[in-house]
Amino acid sequence: MHSNPSPQHRRVGDSPVIKWLLIGIAIAITVGLLIIPLLVIFLEALGAGWGTLADNLLDQYTLHAIGLTLFVAALTVPLNLAFGTALAWLVTRFRFPGRKLLITLIDIPFAVSPVVAGLLYLLLYGRNGWVGSWLADQDMQLMFSWPGIVMVTVFVTCPFVARELIPLMQQQGSEEEEAGVVLGASGLRVFRTITLPNIKWALVYGVVLTNARAVGEFGAVSVVSGNIRGQTNTLPLHVELLYQDYNIVGAFASASLLAGIAVLTLVAKGLVEWRQARALNRLQTEETA
């Protein structure tokens, strides 16, 4: 059928000139906009040698920023893992009024600019906010300290896990789980022995994305952080701070850490996708067999 294509069925890329032109443009854009900037980050960080890079990374405030960033991610990821799984379970396994609305609402953090999200939290939980003024009376402070940073990071990253799980769980359907229930398994057992193994890789994928975003979040955190060095300065904020100090090497040293985490994330993402595809293949061969 394909051996003799009529002229009107020719596709855009069939002419070798156009084909290579398109490939060339795609490569040029990828190299110019993605690869070179990424390389520059590492080159600039190393521009003054390994010793300077180490000095900058071992700086007291940089170390604190790294610690705080990892700490925020360590709180955010489990919270959103639990939240995302529960939510996906709820909207794919039950039918109730407002279910579609709930699915739409999950996307709010994607739709809202992170700066706006930060401001919302500030206006609500800040000293003059509805909740914040009450908290201030109890001598409690959330904004401008690490709980505030965790709160906005949770908000910004909360759709990732749920968004990964919902399509998969919808596609898989609930027959296996229903069978389990009919055979007398408890809810928890159904979840642990049927649901969890089925969604395992999507879950890991969601966690990888959540972690990447939690580590890199700038806008929302910038609003509620208070920018106190050695206390509430996360790694992305620290990059900006060093850059404005004309400490270019220091800024790029910290930036290279963030870029390193991003590269690791991509590797992890690729690995998970590969495992997921393999699991899916096996499932299909089992079904056809």
Binding site: L123, G126, N128, G129, Q141, M143, G226, N227, I228, R229
Partner: peptide, 20 residues
């Protein structure tokens, strides 16, 4: 002594909102 640095209008807003 801790330091917080940002644009001074942003700092003023933060102080009003509870940056102690």
């Amino acid at each position: 002594i801790s330091q917080s640095h940002a644009g001074s209008s942003k700092q003023a807003q933060a102080i009003i909102q509870g940056l102690k």
